[in-house]
Amino acid sequence: MRTLAWPCPAPGGSGEEFALVAGPEDAAARVLLVPALFEEANKTRRLLAETMRALAARGVASVLPDLPGCGESLAPLELQDLDSWRAAVRRCARRFRASHYLAIRGGAVLLPRTAKGWSFEPVAGASLLRTMVRARTIAAREEGREETAARLLDLGRVQGLELAGYRLGARMIAGLERADLPKRSKRLVLTLADLGGEPLWRRSEPGEDPALAAALAARIAVEATP
């Protein structure tokens, strides 16, 4: 595994962002992993690192970028929206000369329309947002405060919102509400039901799932290798 810096003019950023890279540098099959969003990115990171190692063992190169405002990025998350993230994904794909994409969960809403590749357990922006808002209202209730999802979202669309420790700007909130999943052929949508495995992104302590990583890598390597 190595780190790649790639040029990325994200709002408030340093002009470059970082990514994790694995596999042969001259590989013909080059997969860009579009990470899950917010907390789910952390919860699936070990799964993805494991998947990248398994891909490398099959001769497939892969790259896992930090989206601007996430991970090692110096850009403030609050200034990002889905369009700045989509632009970052395109930039990273160009720099890495990606031949395919694998989007994880909410990462599916960032896929370029013509992207070749797969989405794994994709989830629409609105569903992700609903779960995060719900976690906040539940936490508030535990502390004896009453917050409603509708009121939080009204506020969020105007001045942004802090959800699960993430400071989301108004444009990010509005973008997530509208972000539907791209229509994709069934064959390109990978699910836990097909591959076997557990929804690590739901867990407080996700750990890893080596069998799932191996299944993901096997499926992708077969179809991505020319």
Binding site: R134, A135, I138, E142
Partner: peptide, 14 residues
């Protein structure tokens, strides 16, 4: 102990 507010929210969504 596994049921924090994010886990509850995830549980309801599932």
């Amino acid at each position: 102990p596994e049921l924090d507010s994010m886990a509850v929210a995830g549980l309801l969504t599932e």
